[in-house]
Simulated scan of single mutants.
Amino acid sequence: MIAREWKATCPKQHEQGFIEYLYQTGVKETSETDGFLGAQIFNRELNGEVEITLLTYWKDLECIKAFAGEDIGVAKLYPEDEKYQLNPDRHVNHYQVHENLWA
């Protein structure tokens, strides 16, 4: 299993709106892709803004390519991101999941 991590920051007043938008775009699109196994969204206050982290879980790298394209290290952004004054990471990180134990 592969975990894909993407992060962005936005002003506090856009936090809830952007999280809802993230569900309608990135989470919806990934969940419709073969090999998608799940997602988590984390948020925290950071330097007067909000940092939002999206983790998605995938069967393998080929499944990620079906979603992200050939260069899986480049973040997939959406047209209305700037509405939320988003400062997105342009790159994503991938991790091999060695332990997956849920309480």
Rank of each mutant, 00 (worst) to 15 (best):
T9G: 04
C10Q: 06
C10L: 15
P11V: 10
Q13F: 10
E15L: 13
E15R: 15
Q16T: 15
Q16I: 14
G17C: 12
F18H: 11
I19Q: 11
E20A: 15
E20M: 12
Y21P: 10
L22R: 06
Y23V: 11
Y23D: 11
T25N: 10
V27F: 03
V27Y: 02
K28D: 03
K28Q: 10
S31E: 08
S31I: 03
E32M: 12
T33Y: 00
D34K: 07
D34W: 00
D34L: 04
G35N: 02
F36S: 00
L37M: 14
A39G: 00
A39D: 04
I41K: 10
F42N: 08
F42G: 06
L46N: 09
N47M: 07
N47P: 00
E49T: 10
E51H: 09
E51G: 08
E51W: 03
T53R: 14
L54C: 08
L55F: 11
D60N: 15
L61V: 10
L61W: 01
E62P: 08
I64Y: 04
A66N: 15
G69H: 06
G69W: 05
G69E: 06
D71T: 11
D71M: 12
I72A: 03
I72T: 14
A75F: 10
K76W: 03
K76L: 14
L77V: 12
Y78L: 07
P79G: 08
E80I: 06
E80C: 04
Y84H: 14
Q85D: 09
N87W: 01
D89K: 11
D89E: 12
D89C: 09
H91Y: 04
V92A: 10
V92M: 08
V92D: 02
